[in-house]
Design a protein around this nucleic acid. Structure first.
Lengths: 316, 316
DNA sequence: GGATACCATCTGTTTTACCGATAGGACGGC
DNA sequence: GCCGTCCTATCGGTAAAACAGATGGTATCC
């Protein structure tokens, strides 16, 4: 039936686009080359759009094909999420929930979701691991944690399913007595390069090249957010921080926000929940992710103020 | 093939869930009842989850079925968006672009997108109609405008495809000399009910029951946002307004925000781009919607201040 | 109790997906 | 320029899936 666009068709389209070859797409998907050729032709007929230009040996995506490729990836991703959710349900409640959290994730959202989780799943132990950068993805990929809460990774990984939670505002700050804070009217790249940039890092390979914009040749790398925070307060350098984390410092004048003349006005990092595609969360993990989304939605901008919630933690 | 979940299957699932009947779903989709029955059974087998409980005459969604229904709707919506985009491409560039805009949509986003549109499509005339509430949907449904920018409608319409743009912050305000503004510590429902609530409305049937929360039996309905704004400034009542629109009044003390004790802290309305499923936008409209998304993304919170941009308007 | 409407199952038919074979062409090396 | 290799499009045959109609069993309403 012509209306019966299938996930398989879209998957063949995506594979052909990525390999730039129908034969290679067939090998990747364990299908005959003619299956790919006919599936793409059918899809083009159903959509009324030419997706590939066939003029040489290898097919090339048309402009329209390039635009629709992103849509196809969205559809397959959303169907993969549906299947992942179904799989989680089919496998029953998990014995415990382990979550790795990026240190930049707003604690106010996390604490609310965790408090709700404790009430809703009183017998399911919750384990929270706070990691930096690639440490979160590593924990999920190595199945130490079922769910990771992290920013986007440069590698386009098909092993992980991600669900967007919220953007985190990043502000560039320094201590008020820092030289950069004395400059009127905003600081330039040249100004920044003269001073030490405090950069958060970790020890995994996954975040190589992923450290926040390193704008100064003089940079100190710190593997602990608390340490970076302390260095900033001590006036030892400048750097980018999640707004929520330094909102109180900004309000009390312990830190000041630097106005960067050569950078976009607003910098933010999208935070997502991620899990392995072949090990989707069970009902408890599913519920927790939805709770994070719920509280993230209620938090339009990172709100200042320190919020305390008793975590439903337990050890084996 | 078991992996071959199709849009048709999901559409049958959705139709069965909405009608609560396999027979009715078959009638709606012009299919035999047995086709629906087998398709649902196949889908349940593929997902490993029971979607319907069959104990009486009519099937009932299970809890898992209810959760997965939303996912199925997401998948079909994203595939519908893909098809709509493809259809727009197949039909070539449109001669002009008519857009109906909800009055609550932030002008700063609209003006930036319109300015960019004028540069990118210099020969395509742009027509902008500012409407309230149901007026936008009506213009799109009756094909007076190809695209509508509006808040969500209560009716779940399959005739319209929607793409989310941004949330609009709503604040409850009154003039500083209004009695409500004198109350210390926040106002209660009882307080509100004592005073006139100014409510934006329009003349279509589509927004019946859709007016913003009417919390006072004493309410004045105004079909023009400018008039409502003026009434608020004049101290004639209280009401909800988009934050961006009254940010300057709040800053200058012409209006004050009311702290409602019995309402959620943050009220916002999701604004979306909408178009008829059977008349998707062409490349120009497609581009404009993406531009709105782009500028909406750059606007994390409705920003105060009046921004001027010369609209690329032209008349026939 | 009878009429009506529903769902699940079965059977036969139709349609689609798939694979292997093949023709034609692009491309690189000699 | 020729040859070998690899690609895509097409074709024919087969297998699998979708579909509709018939039927049985059951629930519901009057």
């Amino acid at each position: 039936m012509l209306e019966g666009v299938t996930l398989d068709q879209l998957r063949m389209f995506i594979a052909a686009a990525e390999t730039q070859s129908f034969s290679a797409a067939g090998r990747r998907l364990h299908r005959a080359q003619s299956v790919i050729s006919q599936a793409i032709a059918n899809l083009e007929c159903q959509l009324g759009v030419t997706l590939f230009r066939r003029e040489g040996r290898y097919p090339e995506l048309t402009e329209q094909g390039k635009l629709l490729l992103a849509d196809a990836q969205t559809v397959t991703a959303s169907l993969a999420a549906l299947k992942a959710r179904a799989k989680g349900m089919a496998e029953g409640l998990e014995p415990e929930l382990s979550v790795a959290i990026d240190v930049m994730f707003p604690m106010s959202v996390l604490t609310r979701a965790a408090a709700d989780f404790g009430e809703h799943f009183p017998v399911t132990p919750l384990r929270l691991y706070v990691e930096a950068l690639g440490g979160v993805a590593k924990a999920v990929l190595e199945q130490q944690c079922g769910i990771g809460i992290m920013g986007s990774l440069p590698l386009s990984s098909t092993a992980l399913v991600t669900e967007r939670l919220l953007p985190v505002r990043i502000v560039f700050v320094a201590a008020p007595r820092h030289s950069l804070a004395q400059i009127q009217g905003g600081v330039t790249c040249e100004d920044l390069a003269q001073h030490v940039q405090l950069v958060l890092t970790d020890r995994t390979d996954l975040s190589k090249g992923r450290e926040f914009s390193v704008m100064s040749p003089r940079s100190w790398r710190l593997a602990d957010m608390g340490a970076k925070h302390a260095f900033l307060l001590a006036g030892l350098g400048w750097g980018g921080m999640p707004l929520e984390m330094v909102a109180r410092d900004l309000r009390e004048g312990a830190l000041v926000e630097l106005k960067l003349l050569d950078a976009p006005e607003r910098v933010q990092m999208a935070m997502s929940a991620a899990y392995r595609a072949d090990a989707p969360p069970g009902p408890a993990g599913r519920w927790f992710v939805e709770q994070l989304k719920h509280h993230a939605g209620a938090l339009e901008a990172p709100e200042p103020g320190y919020i305390t919630a008793k975590l439903a933690l337990s050890d084996t």
